[in-house]
Nucleic acid binder design. Sequence first.
DNA 1: AATCAATTTGCAACTCGATGTCAACTGAAA
DNA 2: TTTCAGTTGACATCGAGTTGCAAATTGATT
Lengths: 169, 169
Amino acid sequence: MKPDRLKRYSLLQELSSRGVRMTGQRKVLVELIQESEDHLDAATLLERARQRDPGINRATVYRTIELLKRLRLIDELDLMRLNGEKHFYEARTNVDHVHLACFECGKVEEFSSPLFERLKQEITRVNGFTIRVTRLEVGGRCRSCCAQVRTPIECGEETCCKSLKNLNC
Amino acid sequence: MKPDRLKRYSLLQELSSRGVRMTGQRKVLVELIQESEDHLDAATLLERARQRDPGINRATVYRTIELLKRLRLIDELDLMRLNGEKHFYEARTNVDHVHLACFECGKVEEFSSPLFERLKQEITRVNGFTIRVTRLEVGGRCRSCCAQVRTPIECGEETCCKSLKNLNC
DNA sequence: AATCAATTTGCAACTCGATGTCAACTGAAA
DNA sequence: TTTCAGTTGACATCGAGTTGCAAATTGATT
C-alpha cells in the first residue's frame, strides 16, 4: 500500500474535540506536522515553525510533541538511526505501517499489510498483550539502490555503510 | 515462542572466526552481553564490566557496541523508550522476534512468529527491499497487568502512564 | 624472547537531543 | 471583563553518546 493510501488523523480536530487548549504556537506546530510530506524531527519542526512565528521556543516544540504523543495523535520513529539520535514524528494513520529505511540513499518508504494486522492479532491472542503502540522499522537497501549497486550487503564490510553513520549495519 | 527457544549467536566464536582482535576488555564485554538474561544498556554493561575489570572505560563500551553492531552480532533496541533515551542490546538470534514492552510494569517479552517471517518476505517481494535489520517493538499492557487493572487503556488519560516516563502512551 | 606496525584503550573535553525550573503570559469559561 | 489554570519563553541542566590524541596492547614476524 502506498503512503498516500494511509489516512492520517486530523490533529486540530482531535485536539479541539478533546478540549485541549489551542494556543497560537500549538496551532502552528500541529499544522506543520499535519501538512508535512516527510517525517519531521524536533529541530526541523522548530525551524519551520519559526518561519510562521519567530518567537516560538524549542521547549514548546518538545512539550507539544509530548502532548501529541500522550494523546496518541502522532507516532514516534527512529528510522533505524539513519540520521543519528533524532526522533521523527508523523500524524497517526488509521492503519499501522512499516517504515523501510534505505541505508544506501536514506530514503524512507511506508508499507502496510494485512499480514501486519494478523501478526498484531496473534500477539494479542497468544500473549494476552493489549497493544497500544507498535513500531516496525526495517533497514536495508531499497529497490533502486539494489539495482545500482553491484555488491550485495555483506556483514562487516566497511564499504557497505559508506558515508552514513549509525547504520546498524 | 519463548525467549529460551531463540538461539543466540556465539559472539566470541563469531569474532575470532572473523579475525577480530580480541582484547581483554572486549572479551569481558562480549561475555557479559552473551550471558545476560535481560536487555543491557550501555551504562549497565559498563557497570557490570567494571566488576570484572575495574579500569574499563565508557568509551570502550560504546566502541565495542559499535563494532558488534556493524558486524551484525547484536541488535539494538529502544524498548519503546520505557526507560528514557537509552538503547538496549542483545546477541542476535537465529530468528527475528518482536519485543513486547508493558507500559504498566515495565516487563519485556519476546515473541517470534512465522507471520513475522512472512511479512518480511512480503516486504522484499512487494517493495524490492533487501532487508538487513528489523526492529519490531510493541507497547501496551501485558497479560498480568491486564488482569490486575480494571480500567482499559484510554487515550490521554493521565492515569494510564502513572510513574513511568516517556511512554509514548 | 624480542621487535614492531597496526590496532585499541583511557582520558577528558565535547556534542547534541531533550528536560526542568520558574516568572510571565494567555485562552476560554464564567 | 475578569479570572486563573494551563501554557510559554528563557535559560540552566541533564545524560547518552562521540571524538581527538597520547599511551598501551595485540599478535604477526623475526
